[in-house]
């Protein structure tokens, strides 16, 4: 799951391509316009490289940190079959991080630098994983709705212009379809179960609706910068467009189970075909993304612990003649 480009709305647009060779830039843009993919060793504008590194790296971090809230439930899964399925899902997420880190590496940032930037807080990951999974039902809602949101995003991005990222996403989407079915199955099981089970899943939905609405990010500031990134097929759809696609696909499915979405203003405007909703609290979104969420510290502490505790093994296996070159992917 889980990548989404966060575009800095304060960036001055005219700096974007001012140092670039106009002829090469034109050739590059024509190639993308014609539907060609850009490969690692091709010439590319500095801003294209920078935005892609940031976006793919954030996506990779989100996969690896995203495995944590659900991972906490492996030891407490209700039943052996569910435990095995959850372990498979969590392992998939970590595998997705591997694919995405490799794709980002092709642009010239080493995996070690990405790990350091994650732990120092310099790079971000999807905000939703700074919230706790309080009950088993929270893991069901995450697997269903957060993964659904991620699929909307990843299907859009897999049609982007950077070859290695598109290839990683195609592989990821295949595995995500299992997550979505698994999550839906878990939600349906609880929603069609006893009164206690129904209450449990309803509570989880109330807790997770805000992070779900935050997932795609605030409305894009339609600046020259955003337009350029869309032209370069780095950003494939606006945050609002993706949120609409998601609501259109999943709100009816949630209502179908008799569950209540905690937003009295949520409805589809039949004349525009668009969903109307209460604007999510974007101040909270910014506060949490900048470190002040319920779980930010423990997520990074767990990651840091794993990196440090595993280091002696990696060091013991490192051969003296090892040499790092940028992978092909």
């Amino acid at each position: 799951m889980y990548g989404n480009a966060y575009i800095d709305p304060d960036q001055t647009p005219n700096k974007l391509t001012q140092d670039e060779d106009p002829a090469r830039l034109a050739e590059f843009e024509a190639r993308i316009e014609g539907g060609d993919k850009i490969e690692p060793k091709d010439w590319m504008p500095k801003e294209y490289r920078k935005q892609l590194i940031r976006m793919i790296e954030q996506h990779a971090h989100s996969e690896i940190i995203g495995a944590l809230p659900e991972g906490t439930w492996i030891t407490r899964a209700p039943g052996f079959r569910r435990k095995l399925a959850l372990m498979a899902k969590v392992q998939d997420e970590v595998g997705h991080a591997q694919l995405l880190y490799s794709a980002a590496e092709t642009l010239g940032k080493s995996r070690e630098e990405m790990i350091n930037d994650l732990i120092s807080g310099k790079s971000k990951y999807s905000n939703v994983f700074n919230y706790p999974a309080e009950t088993w039902a929270d893991t069901a809602i995450i697997s269903w709705l957060i993964d659904a949101g991620a699929i909307v995003n990843q299907l859009a991005n897999s049609k982007g212009s950077y070859g290695p990222y598109c290839r990683a996403l195609e592989r990821i989407c295949v595995e995500e379809s299992f997550h979505l079915k698994y999550g839906h199955d878990n939600v349906v099981f609880l929603a069609t179960g006893t009164k206690t089970q129904r209450e449990m899943v309803q509570d989880a939905l109330i807790r997770w609706w805000k992070p779900v609405m935050h997932f795609f990010g605030p409305s894009d500031n339609i600046s020259v910068h955003t337009k350029t990134l869309m032209k370069w097929k780095v950003k494939m759809a606006s945050n609002d467009e993706m949120r609409q696609t998601f609501l259109n696909m999943y709100v009816p499915k949630i209502w179908d189970l008799g569950l209540v979405i905690p937003d009295p203003n949520l409805k589809k405007n039949e004349s525009t075909g668009l969903w109307e909703y209460t604007e999510p609290d974007w101040e909270e979104f910014k506060r949490v993304i900048n470190g002040d969420g319920p779980c930010n510290k423990e997520r990074l502490a767990v990651r840091k612990y794993a990196e440090e505790k595993g280091r002696w093994v990696r060091k013991a296996l490192l051969r003296k003649d090892a040499e790092y070159v940028t992978p092909l992917v």
Binding site: S102, E112, I115, R311, L318
Partner: peptide, 10 residues
């Protein structure tokens, strides 16, 4: 911090 080759070669 992770140093160069902490994650091995590819």
């Amino acid at each position: 911090e992770a140093k160069e080759l902490d994650q091995w070669q590819t």
